[in-house]
Structures are given as C-alpha cells and as structure tokens.
C-alpha cells in the first residue's frame, strides 16, 4: 500500500469518488497541526463549493477511524487536532446500496 507520505509538518488528506471528481486529485497535503473543526474550512478555501457538494454528505476518517465532525466542532478547543503524519480521508457515501427507497419506490439492485 503506497499511501502518499506527507512532507514534514503536514498531514495527508485522501479523496475518493465524488471528492476526487471535485478536486481532480487523489490527495493533498495540509499543514499540521490543524484542529479537525477547522478542516472543512481549509478544504473549502482551497476548493470553493466542495463543502456543500461533497463534504456535507461525506464521512471522515482519521488514521482509519471514523470521526464525527460536528461533534468535534462542538467540543471547541477540546476537539481532536490533526497531527503531522496523520492520514485523513473524506469518505463519500459508498457505492453499493442494494435496495433503497427512491420517491417511495424500491429501485432494483444495481450490480447484482
């Protein structure tokens, strides 16, 4: 697994699916430390519009663990701080809901 290694004093932010489409990249490096509560602001500054289009419907992981961004924002100064070398990832909704409601109808399964 060749996850990109961040330069000294930076962390890696990984993009997948719709996040990759929006940024046209698979990852970026951001300066660390950065409070998690400030992450979406930093990403929005770099990619205007991404918050509404991608981030608000996505989940977030830090070093492979899911974190609740809203909860971290509410914690203020006591919230999680992203450190240099951390691997953070934006996780858009996964591709493969099997059956789901759409305008009250059940769609056919997609791949199966």
């Amino acid at each position: 697994m060749s996850t990109p290694k961040a330069p000294t004093g930076h962390f890696t932010l990984l993009y997948f699916a719709s996040a990759t489409s929006f940024t046209r990249k698979q990852h970026d490096f951001f300066a660390a430390p950065l409070p998690l509560a400030k992450l979406y602001e930093a990403v929005e500054e770099k990619y205007p519009g991404i918050k509404a289009k991608v981030l608000e419907s996505s989940a977030l992981t830090v070093n492979l663990d899911y974190v609740d961004v809203e909860e971290e924002v509410q914690k203020g100064d006591k919230g999680l701080v992203i450190q240099a070398g951390d691997e953070v990832a934006i996780i858009p909704p996964v591709s493969s809901g099997y059956e789901h409601l759409y305008h009250g109808q059940t769609l056919q399964p997609d791949t199966c």
């Binding site: 489409s21 996964v94 591709s95």
Partner: peptide, 17 residues
C-alpha cells in the same frame, strides 16, 4: 457517473477522472 447508490440518487457526471 460516480454512483452513490445508498442515496438512491442518479449520481454525478464525472469528467477526466
């Protein structure tokens, strides 16, 4: 089209990805 099927949405067009 990137498919986010869990939402039952038609997904977003993809260019150059």
């Amino acid at each position: 089209v990137w498919r986010a099927n869990r939402d039952g949405q038609a997904g977003a067009r993809v260019e150059d990805t």
